[in-house]
Amino acid sequence: MHGPVSSGWLLVALCAATGAYCLLRMRSRVVEQRRAAGGEALMGFGMAVMAVPAAVFTPPGWVWTALAVVFGGAGLHALWAARTGAGHLHHLIGAGAMVYMAVAMAGPAGHGHGHGGSGTPLLTGTLLLYFVAYVLVAGVRLVPVAAVPGVAEGAGWGDRPELARACRLSMGIAMVAMLLAV
């Protein structure tokens, strides 16, 4: 990403920490939480890779193609899972946004690791509106969080709904920051 190196590294740290927590959530006893956590971990680590400041490291061009393919596959998985519930539509939109950013970064105007005008303004704006709305709604839902039925008081880290919501909120904020750079 272009921009200040310090804010780029903060974004990398936020996304990597979120991805790591989502890996912990994959140990949950609740099947739906485990499924969602896997996709969110992939998203967190993928965003961390994309957020590495261009001034520090410019990955080879094939990395952007690989990210587009991985997130295209994640999008297809989310599309398939969406037929059973609307909860996966957010993952589908997120995967689509990641494909879009990977293609923009690989494009000629992106010069391998930057954004600089390679994005489509209408699509970027639409994704920005979606993720800003998502962040606002997720922020409102975060406070206060009611107890989840079936989750014991001494539940492990993977079964804490308020932490899962905080993770989703932080990834939404990171997505807004990354889309602003497209």
Rank of each mutant, 00 (worst) to 15 (best):
L67T: 06
T124W: 00
F131A: 05
L169C: 11
M43K: 04
W157C: 07
Y134T: 04
A109F: 14
E40P: 00
M98R: 02
F57Y: 15
E153Q: 11
G112T: 07
R83L: 13
V132Y: 12
G154C: 01
A66Q: 02
A164P: 01
L179D: 00
A177I: 12
H90W: 13
G117Y: 11
A16L: 11
H88M: 09
G110W: 01
R165C: 05
L180I: 09
L42R: 06
L169R: 09
L142Y: 04
V148F: 10
P4I: 14
V135E: 03
M171F: 00
S118A: 06
G107I: 08
A48L: 06
L42I: 14
G158N: 00
L129K: 13
H2C: 12
G3N: 14
A95M: 04
F57G: 08
G44R: 04
T58W: 00
H115K: 05
C15N: 15
R160D: 02
M47H: 01
V182E: 01
L169I: 15
P144Q: 09
H115Y: 12
R83D: 11
P108Q: 12
C15Y: 10
A147E: 13
R168K: 08
A97K: 02
G125M: 01
R34D: 02
A20T: 15
G158I: 00
M26H: 03
A66W: 00
C167K: 04
E32G: 00
T65A: 13
V103Q: 01
L11N: 03
L79M: 11
D159Y: 07
H113Y: 10
L11T: 10
A37S: 05
P121N: 09
L128T: 13
G61P: 07
G44T: 08
M43P: 01
L180E: 10
G117P: 12
L10Q: 09
